[in-house]
């Protein structure tokens, strides 16, 4: 769990998440600082999976749940991201039907090009755009647990150890789920797609 023991790089000398949570036991208001640090990050992640409206609610819920469980936070983990992503992931799973439908819809309707993208990303986007229907189909068809691991790593930028912490499973389990999920995604991208039909 080495990576979980290191503070997020951008915090510099700021108070660590663990310290903040510890302080919030005496001063509950201090917990809001955790929101200021991570709400936007979580929102971006959840909006990818569920879309903008559910994301707002899920992020709000995530922090309320986290707040009510802050007494149980293991202060040895200075970085609270895995903990928050774990709570958010549980809340996202309540919307799993909506999530799968969201990906399935992508197989058909093209997403409008991202107007904000810098020019040098365009080529990548075109490639991604071409493979999007296959990717979306693969995502929609993944078992929920495998998808959670895959997206925590690919979209949440968590390490294996952090994903394990987030989901409360051993790192080995994260590896095997990720391996399985990536195999299916690669198969979908490679054209030898076992997932082309709806699951």
């Amino acid at each position: 769990m080495v990576s979980a023991m290191t503070a997020p790089p951008d915090l510099g000398t700021a108070e660590s998440d663990a310290r903040l949570i510890e302080r919030s036991l005496q001063e509950p208001e201090a917990f809001a600082a955790l929101f200021d640090r991570y709400a936007a990050m979580l929102y971006r992640y959840v909006s990818r999976r569920l879309g903008p409206e559910p994301a707002e609610d899920v992020v709000g819920e995530t922090f309320l749940v986290a707040f009510s469980r802050r007494h149980r936070y293991d202060l040895a983990y200075t970085d609270a991201r895995p903990w928050l992503f774990g709570i958010a992931t549980k809340l996202v799973s309540r919307h799993h039907r909506g999530e799968a439908a969201r990906y399935r819809a992508l197989r058909r309707s093209p997403v409008e090009p991202h107007v904000q993208s810098p020019a040098d990303d365009v080529a990548a986007l075109v490639t991604a755009g071409a493979s999007r229907p296959a990717l979306a189909a693969a995502l929609a068809a993944l078992p929920r647990r495998d998808r959670d691991v895959l997206l925590l790593v690919a979209w949440g930028d968590l390490s294996y150890a952090e994903a394990a912490q987030a989901l409360g499973v051993p790192v080995g389990t994260v590896r095997s789920r990720l391996h399985r999920a990536r195999r299916k995604v690669r198969a979908a991208l490679g054209g030898t797609d076992p997932m082309s039909e709806e699951a």
């Binding site: 909006s47 990818r48 709000g60 997403v111 990548a124 986007l125 991604a128 990717l135």
Partner: peptide
């Protein structure tokens, strides 16, 4: 490829997110 797709699907955090902060 997955990260590219994620970036396309992402929404920027809306101003109304502050309401969730107020809730907390």
């Amino acid at each position: 490829a997955l990260r590219e797709l994620g970036r396309e699907l992402e929404s920027p955090p809306p101003a109304s997110l502050v309401r969730q902060r107020a809730r907390l």
